[in-house]
């Protein structure tokens, strides 16, 4: 293997583990005989790679032009609010992770989100709740929310 195989190798590692463990990056550098900084550089330069483990359910919200203009940001905000994580993060229980993607090719269904490789269309805040419920977002979370609301009043 040579330097030019770097990206395919990283892709294979990510396919296997779901992310790029630091240890793996070091081994790649050693095996390919390239500086570790180049491996780390590539791993952080390309959007496809992630350095932390993904959640059991991966949620990707489309932020392409059409989706953005049709309320993609609102959808993303809703996911963040419900999951209490930001883009690129995974919930502490390892259940959900949240990403943004650009145009998944079905702009006429905007705004869309890709949940575990299935495209969800017209993702309004209500739909976000529906999606998360169907994936078993624990009721606790909802209760927490209601409690905090009650306190707020």
């Amino acid at each position: 293997m040579q330097e030019k195989d770097l990206i395919p190798v990283l892709e294979r590692i990510q396919k296997k583990y779901g992310y790029l463990p630091l240890q793996a990056l070091k081994s790649v550098a050693r095996e390919l005989g390239v500086p570790a900084v180049q491996v780390y550089g590539a791993a952080t330069f390309f959007k496809q790679f992630r350095l932390n483990p993904p959640g059991k359910y991966q949620i990707e919200v489309c932020m392409g032009t059409a989706c953005y203009m049709a309320g993609g940001q609102v959808a993303l905000d809703s996911f963040e609010r419900r999951l209490k994580i930001g883009v690129g993060e995974t919930t502490p229980d390892g259940e959900f992770s949240l990403e943004r993607v650009a145009c998944v090719g079905c702009c006429n269904l905007a705004p869309v989100a890709v949940v575990d490789n299935v495209v969800e269309k017209n993702v309004t805040p209500t739909r976000v709740d529906g999606i998360l419920l169907s994936l078993g977002l624990s009721e606790e979370n909802k209760e927490n929310k209601e409690n905090s609301n009650a306190q707020g009043k």
Partner: peptide, 25 residues
């Protein structure tokens, strides 16, 4: 097939080629 790892700038020719060579695009 070379699967690109996703970076807009890699659509640019020279960057595309560099990413194929295992470098940053």
């Amino acid at each position: 097939i070379f699967t690109a790892a996703g970076a807009f700038v890699c659509g640019e020719g020279t960057a595309l080629v560099k990413s194929m060579e295992g470098k940053m695009g």
